[in-house]
Amino acid sequence: MPVTMRDVRAVLDPDEVDYSAGARLGPEAFDYLLALVRDTDPGLAAKAAYLAGVIRGERSEEVVAAAAASEDALVRVAAASAAALLAPASASRVLNDLVVDQDSGVQKLALRSVPADPSPELRSRVREVSAGAAEPGLRAMADNVLRGLH
């Protein structure tokens, strides 16, 4: 049975989403997830972005990157979180801007998703946060991230 938007919404509509069960939708869900990320409902867009990461397919990065470009910080938070589920190179690309996002919540999730072997550019931006973030908690998180890098 082909995956439909109805199937995708059935996964994402619950108040508490079961993302493990949603992963079974597979790559066929990406078009719908991308549409939802670009939709105006930030709640659904955030859920769609995260599910795209959980599915771990070739188009995961595309959907998560679209969420990372959202004007809504709540959607960027989801993208930052979903980046942890991407391959390291994909994660680095998505996180480059998110780790220095103007929103501290986005930064927090982005720092948490930095892969152990990030791109040089991402590594440099984590150093920026460590050195200059206004929020002490973020500086501490960035320090921790740097200590764990290969």
Binding site: E16, A46, K47, A49, Y50, L74, A78, L109
Partner: peptide, 12 residues
């Protein structure tokens, strides 16, 4: 809160 991670409407 603004959001839960992973995203949801709430969590008990």
């Amino acid at each position: 809160v603004r959001s839960t991670n992973p995203p949801g409407n709430g969590c008990a």
